[in-house]
C-alpha cells in the first residue's frame, strides 16, 4: 500500500528525545495561561500542575518550569544562587536550560534576557526587556499565622492581613524592631500580600514600580504569582516605623573594592569577618574594570547604601 493512506509514520512527527524546552506543549500551555493570569492579578497565587523536571523538588523546579516555558533559541539566560553564577546548582540549571533550548548562557546581568534566581535580585537595575524568575520555597505569606490553607485563601480573598501585622507588632514589642529578615511580606498593587521569596530586605524595593517583569514560582507547592512592570510593591510597615534595609552602606568588598551593595559576611578564623559582594559577577566586573578592562557596569539600584530605583 502507498499513500494517500494514513500511517502512523506520516501522521506523527519524527521521534525526538524530548520536546523543545523539555516541557511538553500541553504543560507549557498551562504554564503560559497561569502566568498570564498571575500577571493579570498581581501578587495573587495561581495553582499549576507542576511537572516533573530533572532536578529534585525544592531545588528550583518552580523557577525552572517558568524559565523553560519562556525560553527560546534567542534567549540569553543567567542563573544565580544567592547571587553567585558559579554555584553547583546555578551552573547545572543554566547548562540544562541551554541544552534543551539552544539559548545562550551568560553571567552578565546586562546581557541576560531571563534571570532565574534563588534568594537574590542582581544589583544592576533590570530593564523592561528582561524577565526575573524567582524560585520560591513557600509561596504562602499567611502560612506562619494560618496553617489551614483553605482559611488562608479566604483571608487573601478578604484582604484580611491583620495577622501579618500582628507578627510585626509582636516583633516590635519583643525586640523593639522588625526582625523579619528574608521573605519580607509585601502588598502588591494595593491588594494581595505576597512573599517575595527569601530575598533579603535589601532586594524588596527593587520590585516596586520596576521596569522588568518578575515571575515567582514554587514547584513543590504548585503556585506561581507575578509582579508586572510598574506595579506597586509595598513591604508591610507601620507608618511610624520606617522600612529598613540591611545596613551594608559602609561595607567594602575585600576582593573587588565595591561599596554600597549587598554583602556576604565571611567569618575569619582569627575572629572578625570580611565582606564580599553577594552579586558575584558584579564583583568580577569591578575587578576587571580595576585591572583596566573596558567592562560595562549597568546603573545600580542602590547608591551609597540608599535605594534610588
Amino acid at each position: 500500500m502507498s499513500p494517500p493512506y494514513s500511517t502512523l509514520a506520516n501522521l506523527t512527527r519524527p521521534w525526538a528525545a524530548f520536546s523543545y524546552g523539555f516541557l511538553d506543549p500541553s504543560a507549557k500551555r498551562e504554564m503560559r495561561r497561569k502566568m498570564i493570569k498571575a500577571i493579570a492579578v498581581p501578587g495573587c497565587q495561581m495553582p499549576y500542575a507542576s511537572r516533573e523536571v530533572p532536578i529534585a523538588r525544592g531545588w528550583g523546579t518552580g523557577g525552572l518550569q517558568v524559565t523553560l516555558t519562556l525560553i527560546k533559541p534567542a534567549s540569553v539566560v543567567k542563573v544565580i544562587d544567592q547571587g553567585a553564577d558559579d554555584s553547583v546548582n546555578a551552573a547545572s540549571i543554566r547548562r540544562f536550560l541551554a541544552r534543551v533550548s539552544g539559548a545562550a548562557e551568560t553571567w552578565d546581568t546586562l546581557a541576560a534576557t531571563i534571570v532565574q534566581s534563588r534568594h537574590r535580585i542582581p544589583e544592576e537595575r533590570l530593564r523592561d526587556d528582561q524577565v526575573l524568575v524567582l524560585q520560591v520555597p513557600n509561596p504562602e505569606p499567611l502560612r506562619p499565622v494560618q496553617p489551614n490553607m483553605s482559611i488562608a485563601r479566604q483571608m487573601h480573598a478578604d484582604a484580611d492581613y491583620g495577622r501579618l501585622w500582628l507578627v510585626l507588632y509582636e516583633q516590635m514589642v519583643r525586640s523593639g524592631r522588625i526582625m523579619q529578615g528574608a521573605a519580607y511580606p509585601a502588598l502588591v498593587n494595593g491588594r494581595h500580600v505576597m512573599t517575595p521569596s527569601p530575598i533579603p530586605r535589601w532586594d524588596v524595593p527593587k520590585l516596586n514600580m520596576a521596569r522588568h517583569l518578575t515571575l515567582l514560582s514554587a514547584g513543590r507547592e504548585k503556585r506561581l504569582y507575578a509582579v508586572p512592570p510598574f506595579t506597586k510593591v509595598e513591604p508591610l510597615v507601620f507608618s511610624d516605623v520606617p522600612y529598613k534595609v540591611e545596613d551594608h552602606a559602609s561595607l567594602t568588598c575585600y576582593r573587588s573594592g565595591l561599596r554600597g551593595v549587598f554583602m556576604n559576611e565571611i567569618p575569619q578564623a582569627a575572629g572578625g569577618s570580611l565582606h564580599e559582594a553577594s552579586d558575584s559577577h558584579l564583583g568580577i566586573k569591578a575587578i576587571r574594570r580595576a585591572e583596566g578592562e573596558a567592562v560595562e557596569i549597568g546603573p545600580l539600584w542602590y547608591r551609597d547604601g540608599e535605594f534610588r530605583g
Binding site: 484580611d160 491583620g162 495577622r163 501585622w165 500582628l166 507588632y169 509582636e170 516590635m172 514589642v173 507601620f238 507608618s239 511610624d240 516605623v241
Partner: peptide, 27 residues
C-alpha cells in the same frame, strides 16, 4: 483569642483589621 500571640497583640489585631497602621497608636 489567638492563644499563642501576645495579649496586647490580640487587642491590636482588632485595630489592625480596622486599618490602624501606627505602631505607637496600636500599642
Amino acid at each position: 483569642l489567638l492563644m499563642g500571640h501576645s495579649s496586647s497583640g490580640n487587642v491590636a489585631e482588632r485595630l489592625l483589621m480596622a486599618g490602624e497602621r501606627r505602631f505607637a497608636t496600636l500599642r
